[in-house]
Amino acid sequence: MHMASPIQLLLIAVVILVLFGRGKIASMMGEFGKGITAFKRGVREGSEEIEKSASEQARDVTPDGKDKA
């Protein structure tokens, strides 16, 4: 696999800046940041829910109904 050189990355950045303009790029980066934050929050909440569910299942070991012993 071929890595892009710093000159190639700079050229790509200049082309993107010319095509979209500084304001549009700043707006897109803000939205990108919000998306990353929302994704991280969703992952954290999902793992918390899984841990909560696992701990509830681990505590409740008594069978439902009457004992038949």
Rank of each mutant, 00 (worst) to 15 (best):
M29A: 12
I50Y: 03
A54N: 11
K24Y: 09
V18M: 05
E31P: 01
K52P: 02
F39Q: 08
M29F: 11
G46K: 10
G35I: 00
G35S: 02
A4M: 13
L11R: 07
G42M: 03
A13P: 00
V15K: 13
L9C: 06
P6L: 05
F39Y: 04
A58I: 00
G35N: 00
L19K: 15
L19Y: 14
D60I: 04
K66L: 11
A13L: 00
R44H: 07
A26Q: 10
A26K: 02
I12A: 15
Q57V: 06
L11A: 14
F20A: 06
E51R: 10
M1W: 12
G35R: 01
I25F: 00
G21K: 08
G23R: 14
T62D: 11
A69K: 15
I50K: 09
R59M: 05
P63T: 02
Q57G: 15
R59P: 02
L11Q: 15
A58R: 00
F32S: 14
D67Y: 00
V43N: 01
M28G: 09
M1E: 08
M3C: 13
Q57C: 10
E31N: 10
V61T: 10
L9R: 07
L11C: 08
E51K: 14
K34N: 06
A69G: 13
E56F: 05
E45G: 01
G35W: 01
I25P: 01
K34H: 04
E56P: 01
E31H: 09
S5A: 07
E49C: 08
S53W: 06
L19P: 09
A4C: 07
V18L: 12
I25W: 00
P63L: 04
V18T: 08
Q8V: 02
G42C: 03
G35K: 01
A38K: 15
Q8M: 04
M28V: 04
K66I: 13
S47A: 14
K52Y: 10
E56N: 07
M1A: 09
A69D: 12
P6E: 06
I7W: 09
E45H: 01
A54L: 12
I12M: 11
L9E: 11
S5K: 02
D64R: 05
K40D: 01
S53L: 09
M1V: 06
F39T: 08
K66D: 06
F39N: 08
P6M: 04
E49I: 03
M29I: 07
T37S: 15
S53V: 03
R59T: 10
E56V: 04
